[in-house]
Amino acid sequence: MSAPTKTYTAKSTTGRAQTEPAMVRWGLTAVALVFLVLFLVLPLAAVFSQAFEKGLAVYLEALREPDTLSSIKLTLITASVSVPLNLFFGVTAAWAIAKFSFPGKNLLITLIDLPFSVSPVVSGLIYVLIFGLQGWIGPWLQEHDIRIVFAVPGIILATIFVTFPFVARELIPLMEAQGKDEEEAAMVLGASGLQTFFRVTFPNIKWGIIYGVILCNARAMGEFGAVSVVSGHIRGMTNTVPLHVEILYNEYNYTAAFAVASLLAFLALITLAIKTVAEWKVRQQLENN
């Protein structure tokens, strides 16, 4: 803009018309960044700052506490059951939906997405209504001394419900975009169904699977509402890490609460990093096809 006289070259016209003056650009960028810092960076920084407020020794001590350790163990168990189940489901559902055409396909996709639109509290409640003492099969379960709600199986079931769509909804559009030519070629050349899947399909959807699994895992380890309803909050027994954070916080044990919360925040950061890489790889793969 230093030119003293207006020049009407084609370049300057389109350049000016397709973007805003530099002042406006900087202004908008600044507003957007301030908003994001206030809403994203500040909370993230606060978690770690509060956790380390009283020094590393107190931080480590909070993490070594037996109840914390047992909550970590329960969260790991929950994720290690629910994530593989939903992964298996996601791959089979995506195979059926992306590689074949059948009536009712759109309805099926909508139903798979359903758990995302149900409130976490309602997701927990439905299992209490079935397996709780006042529930459908609750009395029968009690007679046979089987505990589902207010015990570990209930926590796992509720977690499976809330993380149900993650892998499937990532893989369905990806596999649809890739079509089925490569698989058909493999079959015609004499490969078995499993060979076709593992040698042809799998390499194509590998990063999509990683993307789905990492988000599924983050939600499985971090779910609060649904798990809170079915857990019964028995310390050291049915407390997952997020529930343990709540208990510590409500006991005004802020440093310990944030120390445990920092583990989850760290998990979130790792999740974001892997997700970003996976997203980039998926895009690359789609462009190569």
């Binding site: 971090g222 609060f224 997020p242 998990l267």
Partner: peptide, 12 residues
């Protein structure tokens, strides 16, 4: 906000 557990967001 997708990745950070809601309880952590809440107390923070």
């Amino acid at each position: 906000p997708f990745a950070l557990p809601t309880a952590v967001a809440g107390i923070t």
